[in-house]
């Protein structure tokens, strides 16, 4: 299996997995996942709740060891920027955006300096700099998180349900920024998303997961009625009705 994995890994491949499985005790999280993520790509992992998407991303990041299979990573941890699904910030805890950005940029070393990191002007966080992180809206927090992560000049971004809790306008702005980072700055992006529309619009590669790999390829190739039924267990027409009802 190791040999097989190395044959498929080359410089243009960022991550290659071979029959990757993860179980917690008796519970299967996902199994037999074989994927290749290309350098410079904008990849999206889609699937229903409980499909194993976040855990697959954690394995990709090296935060969890797989139970079985091989994963080959052609990147250094210092090249990674990661925005988790959720931050546990007590809304009443007064840490400012400035302190948060400084803390993220240089987490080691004594105390919090006053030196501000250089951040991406396009993300418009200047106005938020003295606001408290716990009091930001969903979209503002994601912009701050992205600014923090980009301040370390990553080559790969891992984004776990990046746009959840963000209104449609804010979501559109965020994904335009991601598109720019991918196209102009050549940052590879791997994101988890429930949003099929956004994935179709921005991602160039899609991995459909539901405990195991259902399909992968370009969005227009994989987003078929058959694949949707395999992934979500219900016909596409019912899925659309459900999405429509839930806005």
């Amino acid at each position: 299996m190791q040999k097989h994995s190395q044959q498929h890994s080359n410089k243009s491949t960022l991550i290659h997995t071979d029959h990757l499985s993860l179980t917690y005790g008796e519970t299967k999280v996902f199994s037999d996942v074989c994927i290749s993520v290309d350098r410079g790509s904008f990849s999206s992992i889609v699937g229903p709740n409980g499909a194993g998407k976040t855990q697959l991303m954690r394995v990709m990041l090296g935060l969890v060891k797989p139970t079985d299979g091989v994963i080959k990573r052609n990147y250094k941890m210092s090249d990674v920027g990661y925005v988790p699904q959720k931050l546990f910030i007590d809304p009443s805890f007064p840490i400012t955006v400035r302190e948060f950005l400084i803390t993220y940029l240089s987490p080691k070393g004594f105390w919090i300096s006053n030196e501000m990191p250089k951040f991406d002007k396009n993300l418009m966080v200047e106005d938020l700099i003295d606001k408290q992180v716990g009091k930001l809206s969903g979209g503002q927090l994601q912009r701050v998180m992205l600014s923090a992560v980009l301040s370390t000049k990553p080559k790969i971004l891992f984004l776990d349900e990046f746009s959840s809790g963000v209104d449609p306008h804010g979501r559109s702005e965020l994904f335009n920024q991601l598109h720019r980072l991918n196209e102009v700055d050549k940052i590879s992006i791997i994101m988890i998303s429930h949003d099929i529309e956004v994935t179709s619009q921005y991602a160039d590669t899609v991995f459909c997961l539901n405990k195991e790999m259902v399909c992968n390829g370009r969005p227009h190739e994989v987003f078929t009625a058959e694949n949707f039924e395999k992934m979500y267990g219900i016909p596409l027409t019912k899925l659309k009705q459900h999405e429509h009802r839930n806005g």
Binding site: L61, L63, Y82, P84, K86, P107, F110
Partner: peptide
């Protein structure tokens, strides 16, 4: 506490987030 305060802050917000940051 002076040396670890930033690490303690980040790890409180998200353990995964802080591990990726090298903590």
């Amino acid at each position: 506490l002076l040396y670890t305060s930033k690490q303690l802050l980040l790890s409180t917000f998200s353990e995964d987030f802080s591990i990726v940051r090298g903590i």
